[in-house]
Each structure stands twice: as structure tokens, then as C-alpha cells.
Write a protein that binds this DNA or RNA. Structure first.
Lengths: 114, 114
DNA sequence: TGAATATAACCGCATGAGCGGATATGGTAT
DNA sequence: ATACCATATCCGCTCATGCGGTTATATTCA
């Protein structure tokens, strides 16, 4: 466990928007446009946070045509695996994440995006 | 689980100095002067970080004469209890914390402080 | 009361980080 | 090649946070 990396790992979680994003991604891969729609945030804001999460090693991305899909990295560092477990147990308890997830269900979640 | 509070809980952990402090406190209550000596940091720096940890609900303090002792709060929020478990499992793996703890053993750790 | 000790809080400074609009970049269709 | 769509990145701005020296506060002792 490297301290600077650990601090950075925690720092990635110390923002509400990013926690909300992770709350959505816990159920599986999502496209930027879906995250934007659910969180009702401008594209640049979402994109910036996703970049932060990716740089911190929390998420991975893949491009499919013009769409970018993001997913949580399941086999990160030991610390991250521990924390991921904590997130899975605690994030769904949050009213904000509950509302976000319900809004996500309201969208047509097929794989070709909007 | 309240999002703003959670982000703040994580934020308290997103600094190397504060992780080091918690690494020391995992073994039990310590006085500010001990933490200062071990981390070899100025008093104002240590005091500031301890205040941050206290405000974030991670540590508690008690005064004993001119000395202030800090300890980790064991029965905090659900999230904090989960994270505390993660810290106990992961912090001692850090070389920095190992060195800090060894330096701490090198001091006379009676209860009347230096 | 004054002096000494421990430590909290203030202060100025530098850096980091969040925001959203604007612009750049990548992919696709015509 | 051009146009369109999705999204990454830049930009200016504001706020947060880290640093350590300095000052304020709390405690103890003579």
C-alpha cells in the first residue's frame, strides 16, 4: 500500500458527484450520455469526473462508435477492492443514489444509447 | 448514508499526513506531542490535521493537564465503521506506517508524555 | 500573578479542485 | 470532403486545502 496512491484513491471518493457516478456504475457499465441524463449535469462536468475516476484507477473506459462506456475496475489494488466492497454495501443506502438508480431505470437502457 | 457527509468522511482520508496519523492511532490513544515527534512535523501542521479529523468525526480528543490525547472513534457511522476496518487491514501494510510505528516504539510511551 | 509548557487557531501563501461554457477531438454517415 | 453526434479537454473563475510561522488559549507551577 503506497501512501500517496492511497490518499489519491480516497480523494477520488471525496466528491459527491463522483460517489453518485460510482453508485450508478455499481450495477454495471454505463455510457457517458446515460450518466449525464441521470445526474442532470452538463457533459463537461460528467466527463471531468469520469476522467478523475479513471486516473485514480477506479474506472475503465471503452469506446463503441461515438459512445464511451465506463465501468468499475473490479480487480484493482487491495485497498480498492476493500473499498469497493464498502461502496457496494453503503452507497445503495443513500437516498441520492436510490433516486439516481430509479431515474436510470426510467430510461431505455438498451446498448445503442440515445 | 448522507452523500455530503460521506464525501467529507472520505476527504478526511485523502491526505497522506492524516493517514499516517490514523495509522499511529490504530494502536491506541496518543498525545499530540507523540504524533509530532514520530511524524517529525511542526506542531501547527499536526494540530491542524487532528482538528480536521475531529471535525470529520474520525477522532475524539480529551485533555489531561496541558496534554491533549487523541483516539479513533470506534462507533461512528456505518460507513466509518466499514472504512475503519479497511484502514486496520490496509494501513499497517504501508512502509511509511511501519516506519512510523517503529519510531513510536523507540519513544518512552508512558502516560505522562515527554 | 507571572512564567513555562502544550497546543489550538490565525495568517499569508501556494496549489489543488470544483464549476460550466467553449473549443478540440474522435467516430460515423453521406 | 463535409456535416453531425458524442465526448474529451481547455479556460477563466471561485473556493478549498495544504504548508509552517506566529499568535492566542489552556493548564500548571512557583
Amino acid at each position: 500500500m503506497i501512501m500517496k496512491t492511497s490518499a489519491r484513491t480516497f480523494k477520488a471518493l471525496s466528491d459527491e458527484t463522483r460517489l453518485r457516478i460510482l453508485g450508478l456504475l455499481l450495477d454495471g457499465e454505463l455510457c457517458v450520455c446515460d450518466i449525464m441524463a441521470v445526474l442532470q449535469l452538463p457533459q463537461s462536468t460528467v466527463s471531468r469526473h469520469l476522467a478523475y475516476l479513471k486516473n485514480a484507477g477506479w474506472v475503465d473506459d471503452r469506446r463503441c462508435g461515438v459512445w464511451m462506456y465506463y465501468s468499475i475496475i473490479e480487480n484493482g489494488s487491495t485497498l480498492q477492492r476493500c473499498l469497493l466492497k464498502v461502496l457496494r454495501e453503503n452507497l445503495p443506502q443513500s437516498a441520492v443514489v436510490v433516486a439516481d438508480r430509479e431515474r436510470l431505470q426510467g430510461f431505455s437502457t438498451d446498448n445503442s444509447c440515445a
